[in-house]
Structure formats: structure tokens, C-alpha cells
Design a protein around this nucleic acid. Sequence first.
DNA 1: TCATCAAACATGTTTAAACAAGTTTAGAGC
DNA 2: GCTCTAAACTTGTTTAAACATGTTTGATGA
Lengths: 243, 243
Amino acid sequence: MPKAIYETIYKDLKQKIETDVFAYQELLPSENTLIQTYGCSRNTLRRAVGRLVTDGYVQTMQGKGVRNIYQPISQTAFTIGEIESFRESAIRNGHHPHTSVLLFTEFAVNRKQAQSTGFPVGTEIYYIQRLHYLDDIPLILNHNYFLKEATPGLTKEIAENSIYQYLEDTLQMTIVNSKRIMTVEKMTQIDEKYLNMNAEDYNCMAVVSSQTYNSDGVMFEYTQSRHRPDYFRFYDNAVRRSV
Amino acid sequence: MPKAIYETIYKDLKQKIETDVFAYQELLPSENTLIQTYGCSRNTLRRAVGRLVTDGYVQTMQGKGVRNIYQPISQTAFTIGEIESFRESAIRNGHHPHTSVLLFTEFAVNRKQAQSTGFPVGTEIYYIQRLHYLDDIPLILNHNYFLKEATPGLTKEIAENSIYQYLEDTLQMTIVNSKRIMTVEKMTQIDEKYLNMNAEDYNCMAVVSSQTYNSDGVMFEYTQSRHRPDYFRFYDNAVRRSV
DNA sequence: TCATCAAACATGTTTAAACAAGTTTAGAGC
DNA sequence: GCTCTAAACTTGTTTAAACATGTTTGATGA
């Protein structure tokens, strides 16, 4: 539940835009009008609208107003800009997610792993391989490296459901920040096997590597997500700033 | 040149972080200290710091302070979150960009093109095929569709340099907003030919499709950028909001 | 010595007010 | 009718102040 007023207003406006209360390409009510509607100050309202701008939902035009430029996006969309677990994003889009754990183990990172993950050599970690299904189709092969010190008590059972839910609800951890890199890599035999792919067809994967930090500034997770190329979509909205 | 105070402070702090004036994982000076340094109000300072947060440069911790979590990223990086021309981003990273125009033509969009571009059927557009080189290696094959009405006077010569520079400097257009979708697609014979690729090796491309809006809320550009998979990197920083 | 607690300090949210700058509208004057 | 302009809008920037909430620190007291 959002406690902050601007969060509430933001969500209300967002929902109104998504449900066509405001028409595409039309102007939203002016700031003054919305201030009266929500009974808040100008700053608070502008903060909510500012979030809609970075979401690509609206566009502000000085002197004119705020235009709705939201267009619904299709299907298997992994919207960028927020940290969301596979489970959360699947449910949000009305799909049935399902996860199977292929491997659950723990070890200390060696030099090669330190290179790719960003964890120092010797760090104790949980290493988990998971396969994510959407409506019974295997879409993503995940390699998770969790800092053991920061995520104690992780089990295979938790990994089968939602690790993030465990971290946030049980361990009271606050996830704050995630740096991601998108690349395209050759498909491996492991990819082929688990994702039911044929390298004669596509021979590449969409790979998202991410480093995630908690509120203590500790990088507690490195994950490589290997996506089926034919189902992969990554959305983003960019705003050009004055140069 | 930034006219707004918060822009100036933002850029100064950003530059200080990039040049290690503040050490990695250390705390920045407190708000009160920075307010005195810059002689500005708290709101203005917080606005600058807020931008650094969304850039993934720093992490704020209530009660504690602001931690520097910036780590330089490598090589051919196309950082997300901002609209940047190929030329701008290449120069920013110290490379030598070069563009060759393969095709410069104009026509009215048919039904199939309307589907993919988002322009209505019959819209008059410039269609440009361009090949972007970085340090003499062809990396990106671009298909540009520019709304003729909004971008009058476009020529092949302009396309060889910077179209964005023409739009902003000569036409006084303000580019505001760009929605992008990242996918992986099969390599075509055209890709193979111009990018010196061999489909026996990689048979896929990283494809970024984007719709760009100007300050009038008009979508004036649709572009499909087909990237060499082995050179493609897309950076992003995500912030988790309270659920 | 050690635990407790209040003060000091950090960031987070909200309001109010003023001014700046771009756009639209309505009216005055021709 | 037409043009020009001033007034009334719109969003953009900045300051000031108050309160909320989380963290650290240091003094007090047992």
C-alpha cells in the first residue's frame, strides 16, 4: 500500500490512463484542476505527473498542457525501469507462471566467476539454476548467484516459488537498485535442451545480466537470464534532456 | 548549456563521481553540506541527486546518507534512458563514428508498413537506409522513417552527418520522448551483406525499434536499428519502488 | 561497564508562495 | 473582418519552512 500521497495520485492517474478515462493524444486536466480533484499541493501533483512522464505515459508541454501518449503494449512484455520478479511481471500480464529448480547448490566463487559476477574471489554464494515457464512454455533459463551472507536460509523450496518474496517478507530486505546489461549470445546445448530450442533455427539467446543492490549498498545478487529469442521483448522509454 | 540550477549541480556531481572525487561505496557529503557548497535550496539539490539515483550513480539511504555506487562501464556501451544519436554516443565514448547512406527515398506508407511503424496508411515519409560504422567496422543497419510534414528539407547530405542535429538546430524541433522495444530477430541477407556477417556463425540480430515524439506530441520518426549481435550492449538501471 | 534514551543528524514528504516562460483567448481599436 | 495586444491561462524553476522517519552519537544513570 502506498503511504505517500504522490504515490496514490500517480497510481490513480496511471490507472485512469490505462483504462481510457483520458483519451490518447488528448490533454489531461490542468494542474490546477487536478490539484482541486486530489486536494493536494502543486508540488505533490507535479511529482506524480513526473513519474508518468518517465514511464512514457504522458508528455508535458510548457504553456499547453499534458498530453496522454500511452498506447497499450502487447503480450509477453517485460517492461524495463522497474525491478520485478518473473512471477510479479507474469501475473501482472495475466499469465500463469511456473518455475522449476534445475540445480540448487552453494560454493565459493573462483577467479573466472568473480570476473563475470562482480563478487570477489572466495565469496560464499548460493548458485541456483531455474527454468521459468509461462503458460507451460519454458521461456527463461536463469543462473542466480546470491550472496550467502545477505540471503541466509535460502532453500530449494523457496527458489521454486518467489525468492524476492522471501527476501522482502521474511528477511525484511529492501531491494533498491539493479544494473542490467542486455546482450545477444550464442545458444548453448544446455539452452537448447531446457528451452526446447533447435540451434538449426535460432542459434542465439537474448541475455540479461544484472547486479542487484540492497538498501545497505551491498550487491547481493548476480543473475544471468537467458531468454528464448522468439519470445523476448524489452520495453523502454527514453526522455531527451536539454543538451 | 544548462540554464536550470539543478541541471548544473547534477552535471557537476555526476562529473565528480565519474572522476573519482567521491570514492566508490563511500558516502557523498550530506544534503546540508552540498546546499552550502552550491548555495542553493534543499529542493534544488535534491532534484539533482534524484537524477543521479535514476542514473544508477548513487543510492540514497534514509537516515544514513547517499552512497556512490557508480562503476565505469566498458567499451561499446549504448546507455539507455536517454535519447542520443549514434554520433553523440560514439563521440562520448571516444570512438570515431562514420555513416554511409545506402538509400534515400520518399513514399506514402502502405498497410503493411503502417502496421509496423505506427504511421497511418498514406502518410508521406522519408525512408532512409543507413549503415553506421564505429572505427571503420559496420555495426548498425538503420531503417529510418521520418514524417515528411514534420521534417521538411531532409537530404541525403544531412543523413550522412547527423539528422538530429539538423532537426534540433535548423528546424528548431524539440525531441522529447522515445519508446523503444528490444527484440532478437533472424539475420537477413541484407544484414549479412552490409554488416560483413556470416549466418553460419551468428544467425540473429539485436533489433531496437523506436517511435520518437517531438514537443508537439507528434510521432515524427520510426526507426528500426539492426545491431551486430557480437557488438551489441544495452545498459539500464532499474529502481524498485515500494509495492 | 553497559544499557537506555535523548539529541543531533541523515534523508523523505508535503505545503505555500513567488517568479519565469510559453500558449491561448478575448477584447480593443482600426 | 482583421490585427494587435493584454490578460488569463498553461507548465517550469526555485526558495522556505515544517513535519516525518530512520540512524548515529553521546551523555546519563544504574
